[in-house]
Write a protein that binds this DNA or RNA. Structure first.
Lengths: 338, 338
DNA sequence: CTGAAAGCGCTTACAG
DNA sequence: CTGAAAGCGCTTACAG
């Protein structure tokens, strides 16, 4: 391993001077700087991150909380997998690497905060935490800059799709296709996670705007975001309301559960029931009928998230909610009636 | 921040003694050890990884090379996404964190080796590298323990599915269903990546065992692993051979391309053409007809990969190829003929 | 069983 | 514009 002292010996300067040349600070003359950097090149010197981190207290590490306990699909989560991928490249450009924060690091029963302290991460991305709001608020208070892409936590910026607007658009679209008896198949929500609630708000507002009743019997909350939960919720919703002609689902997987239920119960799709989902899951274009849904803008979401976090790390702490529009993708699962 | 010296002051011992107590080495008396650990608990002391890394030369970081340039699906890759997820938790149990190795870290045009040296990773997982064999062999030589889950590189262990055996089984299954004119729709291969080639070897061996000709016209190599490449390859294969009754595809995405081609050209499935894929992509069970395919055992693959890498890091360097059986998932895309 | 000394590779004030 | 000194928080031989 070649160190700063090797460069010093080779060039005749001392370690601090080498350091300044490499980091571009300190008023070095053009000549010495160039001369030093040349040797740095030649010897293929690589700074030691550990030593650097020890003195500067910056690790250039960003902790990511991503457990996906609600979908159980890990990196293949239809939103967060892609978001993380884009986020990763953005922060790498800025010289940061990603490190996953875990609650069972080293087989111990740690908290996210402990893992972040152990690794001394410079910032934290709450991508899809599986945690109580108490735990999340501890993160907000631990002093490390945080940003969230799903949960709303006091003191932390959230970058998230315009769920209410999308729910409004979905429902307005169904109304424009002649539907009047429109159900909502929702997902669980917590004190910090609001995606399903927001989508429902948009649904209700669109109904009201069209002078339609918000019928609470038409609204069903599933026990989870997965297909099985969607299937069970669909069963309850459809058995209770024989007059539904359309259902807006909180996400695609729940919609797949509804489609499964319809197939098993000889409800022809989309003839007897129109369906709109959310997420533009890869399966959405392959399932029969292909699913009308909303595509979240992962690129923009990731860009905003990275920007806010990097700014926070740089000391420009801001706490705000940024909304990114989702795009409706029209396919074959909605039928125009009368 | 609370350090080892705070513990020392509080307990009356010196720093090295605290260190020994925490790390469990050095012959400390039960009593002092317990007394020290008590204070460690009380003060919620967290060791500083940077300092530790600087002295021990161990970062407890595992570099992962994962670009997914061939599928372009990032973390949603049907094999590597799930594999990585399982791998992540396994190494975390052992006290290691994952760090992605990139070729454009800090917007520079680095190599994977440079990024690993910069971060001083203890080991490297070559999950799905986008690199020349030259670059990969440099990794093998850089002194950091490596393990691969796809590519075959001299000096590096590879843990991979039993592709040839699966290809054999797929083809034998098609033969057992009455098929004689069986095509193979393959994917590109490089000097280090053999998945498609191995699957084809199994295909050819099964044909030979059944005394069927290996007809080179029945074999087509697509330009990529994606659906578009599959579509184009399917077009060439099917236009050239009107007598095919079945096709074994190197992966599911290529199979989806073939299905798309058939749908667009009024080739009824599976009546006119039977199809077997590979990967058990999530879409496979939703597409019509649902696709018979092979499920790679991500859990076992991840476990073996983690074991081999952790062993290598521990100094038990071994270079070997480990094969994990893939499981055939029978669905509706193969029709029994005659 | 415990401690004094030295060092890991870097950077940060502070002199000059 | 460059250097001498000190320190970041830990661990590793080596004494005793």
């Amino acid at each position: 391993m070649i160190t700063i002292y090797d460069i010093a010996k080779k060039t005749g300067y001392t370690a601090p001077t080498i350091s300044k040349a490499i980091n571009g600070n300190g008023g070095l003359s053009q000549k010495t700087r160039a001369r030093i950097l040349k040797v740095v090149e030649d010897l293929e010197y690589k700074p030691n991150m550990a030593a650097r981190a020890l003195t500067t207290r910056k690790t250039h590490l960003i902790g990511v909380i991503f457990e996906d306990s609600n979908m159980g699909r890990g990196f293949e989560h239809p939103l967060f997998g892609g978001l993380l991928n884009a986020f990763r490249y953005l922060v790498e450009d800025a010289g940061y690497d990603i490190l996953f924060l875990s609650k069972h690091f080293q087989q111990k029963n740690n908290s996210y905060v402990e893992h972040s302290q152990y690794r001394d991460v410079d910032g934290i991305l709450l991508l899809n935490p599986d945690a109580s709001s108490l735990e999340l608020s501890k993160l907000a208070e631990c002093g490390i800059p945080c940003v969230s892409t799903n949960d709303f936590i006091p003191g932390i910026s959230t970058i998230v799709s315009a769920n209410k607007e999308a729910g409004f658009q979905a429902t307005e679209y169904l109304i424009s296709m002649g539907h009047r008896n429109i159900g909502f198949l929702g997902a669980p929500f917590t004190s910090t996670s609001r995606a399903s609630v927001e989508r429902r708000q948009g649904y209700e507002e669109a109904l009201k705007k069209a002078n339609l009743n918000v019928n609470s019997s038409y609204i069903e909350v599933c026990t989870g975001w997965q297909i099985e939960a969607g299937f069970e919720g669909a069963k309850r919703l459809c058995e209770r309301n024989k007059d539904l002609t359309a259902v807006f689902c909180a996400n695609d997987t729940i919609a797949f559960g509804l489609i499964l239920y319809c197939n098993q119960n000889n409800i022809p799709l989309p003839d007897k029931l129109s369906i709109v989902g959310f997420d533009d899951d890869r399966v959405a274009s392959y399932i029969t009928p292909s699913l009308t849904t909303f595509r979240q803008n992962k690129q923009i979401l990731a860009k905003m998230t990275a920007d806010v976090l990097l700014q926070s790390i740089a000391g420009n702490q801001i706490t705000e909610t940024i909304r990114v529009p989702a795009e409706m993708i029209i396919r074959d699962s909605v039928k125009k009636i009368i």
